[in-house]
Design a protein around this nucleic acid. Sequence first.
DNA 1: TTGAAAGCGCTAACAG
DNA 2: CTGTTAGCGCTTTCAA
Lengths: 322, 322
Amino acid sequence: MATIRDVANLAGVSVATVSRVLNNNGYVHEDTRKKVVQAINKLDYKPNAVARSLYKKTSKSIGFIIPDITNPFFPQLVRAVESFFVEEGYTILLFNSDEELEHELKILEIMESKYVDGILIVSNTIGKDQLEHLSIPVVAIDRVIDETIPTVSIDNYHGAREAVRLLLKKGCRNIAHIRGPENVHTAEERLKGYLDEMKAHSLPTFVYVGNYELKTSMLTTMKLLSENAGIDGVFAGNDVMAVGAIKAASKLGIAIPKELKIIGFDGIELAEAITPELTTMEQPILKLGKKSGELLLKLIQGEPLITKHVTYHAKLVERNST
Amino acid sequence: MATIRDVANLAGVSVATVSRVLNNNGYVHEDTRKKVVQAINKLDYKPNAVARSLYKKTSKSIGFIIPDITNPFFPQLVRAVESFFVEEGYTILLFNSDEELEHELKILEIMESKYVDGILIVSNTIGKDQLEHLSIPVVAIDRVIDETIPTVSIDNYHGAREAVRLLLKKGCRNIAHIRGPENVHTAEERLKGYLDEMKAHSLPTFVYVGNYELKTSMLTTMKLLSENAGIDGVFAGNDVMAVGAIKAASKLGIAIPKELKIIGFDGIELAEAITPELTTMEQPILKLGKKSGELLLKLIQGEPLITKHVTYHAKLVERNST
DNA sequence: TTGAAAGCGCTAACAG
DNA sequence: CTGTTAGCGCTTTCAA
């Protein structure tokens, strides 16, 4: 690999001059510029990003921590984030944390030592303390970690209420909720929305704990259906669990949506792939990704954030499961 | 951020000594080591990976190019690769190429300038020429790029034959194939397998071109069913298209598997999420990821590769669509 | 308009 | 066992 020195020698100039044409700053005579460019081409010279990083204390890279890329919610988010930052000349370092705090902390250390310019994180486990002392800008996605740290998320509470409202409108009266894991912020909010909406209509509530996974949800649905006669609607805490609920109904020979109506939350692609297609509260996943990229970039560039917290709304998408 | 010099000053030793305790090489007296360790802790010092990279010409990072993380085949692959390399102390730079050559080449340049230690790539578009002159070890996954470059893939040809054989065994005689995009290696191999197996049984062939996507495949299936009476089996080039075929059948009111049997290829999680669950030729995706990691790591460490090409076999997983 | 030289933080000879 | 020093490849004063 050719270095800046090789280019300088070949062009018969100093490295400083080469650096100037590389970065397009400072004065450099048109003739010398040409010589330098020629040398660059001839040697197929590419500036060494590591050396540059060392000096500039910036790496043109973003660290992105997600729980698990295998969870269908994240591929789209990652894609949106990556697209945004590639445009801006940044590279994405991707880490799966499995929501394990210890792992997350290790990742944070790696990021510090690698001089990442900014951090994007989706986590329930991490707290503001571990993030604040970081000296690297951070934006949280999907889950609010703390008032002080910038966040892009959606209004889970009202989304949940709207989901329940649809079931109500469709005639359901005995609506069960399969909630996401305890202590997970999104799951708690959605639960609260369900509870409040049901209470507002003086209807009974049926809450079962799921873990945002398909198989467990299928089993849970079977259980909840056998334990409670007359359930005519299910609001699942996310789409994956809703799909599990649909599978359960189909195994039990229960007709959807005639006998049982099911609504999910998230708007992942899977919702459209299955039969019947799943009605869901669709999150603007791409927007989440893009907006969090924008906030982080501003932070990196030292601009102040007017609003630290951006909240989007989930949109009802009616399909065939209701 | 504290530097090695700060640590040295605080501990009252030279930077060399600090470096020695950091890297655990060379002699250093137990007492001095202790002083250094204390200073490190006191300052919460983390070695600067960028500076280290510059000197060692290695970055402890791996570049990974995939077409699109949004394609359900890749999350699992990425996860497997990431898990493997995290263990080994490497970081993953993830890039989506959309299979665009121009984009792939730009990514390669970025990787060179960032001193990535190794490259993993899934691509149909790139050729050996652009990879060979690279001076960074490369391992191709899923698709053979060239004899000369190490590859981990599966035997698509025989997998396809086995898929067709199952349909045959189940009594199908008019089996259609929705193939993947033209010029895509995996798609060509699977097509060849289908053709040869059908020919071996002197059965007619029906080939339609898909693009590995769900919606197109659904439309294509409708078309193929309307154009050819008596189709009783469909071998889809991948699971996503098989799901599309199932949706088409369900829209048309065709019973699966009674009237029409469908088999896919890949073994993605979606196959199990839908109803009826999809029979498929399951690829050992995790193994693919792990093995390619192993090969790349050997290459990085300068060990010779005994076998440049590792081929796995897809495994028939019978579910309810056949 | 250009070059010399210092230095980003670290590692690895080389002396001592 | 420890310190001095020369880089890794680049950017940026400071002079010329």
